[in-house]
Measured scan of single mutants.
Amino acid sequence: MPSETPQAEVGPTGCPHRSGPHSAKGSLEKGSPEDKEAKEPLWIRPDAPSRCTWQLGRPASESPHHHTAPAKSPKILPDILKKIGDTPMVRINKIGKKFGLKCELLAKCEFFNAGGSVKDRISLRMIEDAERDGTLKPGDTIIEPTSGNTGIGLALAAAVRGYRCIIVMPEKMSSEKVDVLRALGAEIVRTPTNARFDSPESHVGVAWRLKNEIPNSHILDQYRNASNPLAHYDTTADEILQQCDGKLDMLVASVGTGGTITGIARKLKEKCPGCRIIGVDPEGSILAEPEELNQTEQTTYEVEGIGYDFIPTVLDRTVVDKWFKSNDEEAFTFARMLIAQEGLLCGGSAGSTVAVAVKAAQELQEGQRCVVILPDSVRNYMTKFLSDRWMLQKGFLKEEDLTEKKPWWWHLRVQELGLSAPLTVLPTITCGHTIEILREKGFDQAPVVDEAGVILGMVTLGNMLSSLLAGKVQPSDQVGKVIYKQFKQIRLTDTLGRLSHILEMDHFALVV
């Protein structure tokens, strides 16, 4: 994948999101292997301009796509893939009243899908469409860049269908997702969380590099694949309309690839034109409109599966009536509230959605109805927002919020430890010299600072030695090549209790 991002070429006709291997024109390309080798690009942008032909009021008969309808489940399912879809609609009884809503608040519980998330729908649909058009064949390999849930859905379907599955996901995604993927037989590649989507090191860039190296491999490409919004247009939206008897006044959905909100909203605009569509985008993402909503100094966020630093091709923002931004604290607070007060075992993005819903639905009156999409299960986040310690460490809970008995030293300040200034190293000294210094002084790690004293990161003896043994660096290389740029900081005025929580999850903390 090139470091400079080429513009994806656009073909003359058809839909841009065809499933299957992508040609340089962004659509299915038939021909000899030699032709494909000559024409197939190194990668295709996940934010390529959409060429979708959908228009409100256009006859369904003019759609270029294969459409399906929700099917009634048999008493005995032939395999677990038949437990994807037909998820329950559940009334939220307490939270709406707590925040003064007059309307009825309903939750579409997508964590009841077989793999635990709304992404099971698009995973199965992308595979079925690729099999139907002859792209996927027995023994082929599926590769997908994902925040985890699409990966789980694909790995689940691949396990049943017999495909090899490789999932490329950023490091910030939970260990629970990784464990589930491994249990399903998927191979996992992790990428830096802070890598831009168009960087060769991003999950998108690495996935395309693997595709170019592995024979008979395919990126189904949830960011561009029409099967993504079509899955929701054909099934999720129809289920909502049936469950609500066609009567709903507002739908609120958090947005990642945009397939969920695009597919549902398009069908609702056709069948229930008075329904307002509300999009939820986390602070630090750029999906919301108008652009002024996205202006923030924050560039990272903890909530998973929603928000991006690019506009995915499948996201149709014209069908969203209003956007709201959400933050991590309210997302996790509301997710825990949904679990504790409503018994809905949902993930953090569901918290984002409901946090926005109780604001947006203030305009609705008694007798009206708001539906929220709860995308995934708490299963993926047992060591994250479900953990009091994690919430404390991230600053989303305060010590006084917890009532468990603490040891005698818990409320003492870090400054009472009488710490001395640490050994520091410059980023320009060599790895070999740094190892000598650390061994001589008896230290395992040291902060790396520039000549102005600005902290650049941390270097550890173990990481340097393993990097040297693996051949990633040489003793003569500058130590700046092996620094940890993500590390926890703590102030002298913070409590030892807070430091204790940090050290339970990290090997060190830097006192500043």
Rank of each mutant, 00 (worst) to 15 (best):
D86R: 10
G256M: 00
S19R: 07
G153P: 05
K269G: 06
P41M: 09
A157H: 02
G151H: 00
E187T: 12
G116M: 13
C244T: 02
G134M: 10
L248W: 00
E37N: 11
G14E: 10
G116A: 14
A186R: 02
P145G: 10
M89D: 01
I167C: 09
E9Q: 14
I95F: 09
N93V: 04
Q55M: 12
S217W: 02
K271Y: 06
K83F: 08
A48K: 10
F112K: 04
I261D: 01
K177I: 00
W43A: 11
M89Q: 02
R276M: 10
V204M: 11
M126E: 06
D198F: 06
K30N: 11
L28E: 10
A71L: 13
G185S: 00
S50A: 09
M250Q: 01
T193S: 05
T5Q: 09
S147K: 03
L230S: 05
H232E: 00
K36L: 13
N228Y: 00
I219G: 02
G256P: 00
A107T: 07
H67D: 03
A157R: 02
P273F: 06
I142G: 03
V160G: 07
T236S: 09
P145L: 00
R58S: 05
I122V: 03
L105T: 06
R164Y: 15
P138S: 15
I261T: 15
S199G: 05
L210E: 01
H65Y: 05
E213L: 06
S147Y: 03
N93L: 14
P21C: 11
P273V: 10
S27K: 15
R125E: 09
E37A: 07
R276I: 08
P41W: 10
D86W: 08
V90Q: 03
A8K: 11
A71D: 12
F112L: 04
C103G: 13
P170C: 04
M250W: 00
R132T: 10
K39T: 11
D249E: 06
D86M: 10
P70L: 11
A69R: 11
G162I: 07
I142W: 01
H65T: 07
S73A: 13
D120R: 04
I95G: 00
N216F: 07
I95N: 06
M126V: 05
D238V: 11
E128Y: 01
I261F: 02
K39R: 14
A158G: 07
L184P: 01
G134K: 06
G246L: 05
K137L: 15
K36G: 04
H22G: 03
I240M: 06
P192W: 04
D129T: 05
V160I: 10
C275S: 14
L220G: 03
I142Y: 01
A157Q: 06
A157P: 07
V168A: 07
V206P: 04
G153F: 05
A71V: 15
L101G: 00
D86V: 15
G139Y: 08
R121H: 01
G162V: 03
R224Q: 08
L156W: 01
L156F: 05
E176L: 08
T150H: 01
A69F: 15
L251P: 00
K94L: 12
T193R: 09
A158R: 02
V206I: 13
T135V: 08
G96T: 04
I80F: 09
R18N: 11
K247Y: 06
N93Q: 05
D35H: 13
G274A: 13
F197K: 06
K137D: 08
K98I: 14
V160P: 02
W43Q: 07
E128A: 04
V10Y: 13
P21R: 06
H17T: 09
R266Q: 05
R161M: 07
E270V: 13
K75C: 12
D249I: 01
N212D: 12
K72Q: 11
R182K: 11
K269P: 01
N225Y: 00
D79F: 06
V180N: 01
E4N: 12
I44L: 09
L230M: 14
K108Q: 03
T257W: 00
Q243D: 14
A237H: 06
T193D: 10
D47I: 04
P21Q: 04
N225P: 02
R125F: 11
K247G: 08
I142V: 13
K98V: 12
L105R: 05
T5H: 07
T135Q: 10
R161L: 04
E176R: 03
T257M: 02
E213A: 14
F112P: 01
E239M: 00
H17K: 04
F111M: 05
I80D: 01
A253H: 07
T87H: 00
A226Q: 10
D238C: 09
G274W: 14
L154R: 00
T257S: 06
W43L: 12
T87D: 00
I188A: 04
G139V: 04
E201Q: 09
D35T: 07
L248I: 12
S217A: 06
D245S: 09
E37I: 09
A195I: 08
N93T: 05
Y233D: 05
I92T: 10
P74E: 10
A69L: 05
R18T: 11
V189S: 06
K247C: 13
Y163V: 00
A265P: 05
I167H: 08
G31E: 14
A130G: 10
R58I: 12
L248S: 04
H65G: 01
G258L: 00
E201T: 11
L136Q: 06
E144F: 00
K83E: 10
S147E: 03
L105Q: 01
G259N: 03
I240T: 07
A226S: 12
S63N: 09
S175Q: 12
P12G: 07
R121S: 00
Q222V: 04
G14Y: 12
L77D: 06
K97H: 09
R224C: 07
T260Y: 00
G185P: 00
L220V: 02
S3F: 14
S175Y: 12
I166R: 09
K267L: 12
S123I: 07
G153V: 01
E40S: 10
V118Q: 01
Y223E: 01
T262C: 09
M173E: 02
H65R: 02
R182Q: 08
E128T: 08
K247A: 14
K72I: 11
I143C: 02
M169P: 00
S19N: 05
P16A: 07
S175P: 06
L181S: 00
K94Y: 11
A71S: 14
I214H: 01
E37Q: 13
S73E: 06
K83D: 10
P200F: 06
W208Q: 11
V206C: 09
S174W: 02
D238S: 14
P12T: 10
E34R: 03
K267W: 06
L124C: 08
S199A: 04
G263V: 01
K172A: 02
I214S: 02
E34K: 12
I95V: 12
S3T: 11
P273Y: 02
D133T: 11
G116L: 12
H232Y: 03
L124E: 11
T191F: 01
A24P: 12
D234W: 03
G258K: 01
W43G: 10
D129A: 09
R132K: 11
V10T: 12
G57A: 15
I240Y: 02
I261L: 07
T146F: 01
T150P: 03
Q222G: 00
V180D: 02
R182G: 12
T260W: 01
G31C: 12
H232M: 00
Q243Y: 08
F112N: 01
E176V: 01
L28H: 09
E187C: 10
K83S: 10
I142K: 02
P138L: 15
G153R: 00
G139A: 03
S117P: 04
S175C: 08
H22D: 04
K30C: 03
A60P: 10
P78G: 12
T141G: 12
R91A: 08
H65D: 01
C103R: 03
G116N: 13
G246Q: 08
L241H: 03
S73P: 12
W43D: 03
P59I: 14
P215W: 08
P49H: 07
I127R: 04
N194L: 09
E131G: 08
D47H: 06
L106R: 10
K172M: 05
F112Y: 06
N228D: 02
C52K: 00
K97F: 15
K36D: 05
K269C: 13
I261K: 03
L181A: 00
L268Y: 07
P2I: 14
H232S: 02
C109R: 08
G96H: 08
D238E: 11
L154I: 04
W208C: 07
A231C: 11
A130P: 01
K82I: 09
R209A: 08
E187Q: 11
E131I: 07
S27F: 05
G263W: 00
S175F: 08
C52D: 00
K211M: 15
R51P: 06
L210K: 08
E34V: 08
I152D: 01
I264P: 02
A38G: 13
K269Q: 08
P88V: 05
A237F: 02
C275H: 01
M173R: 06
K25G: 09
L251K: 04
T236A: 05
K36T: 08
D140R: 07
E213N: 13
L156K: 01
V118C: 07
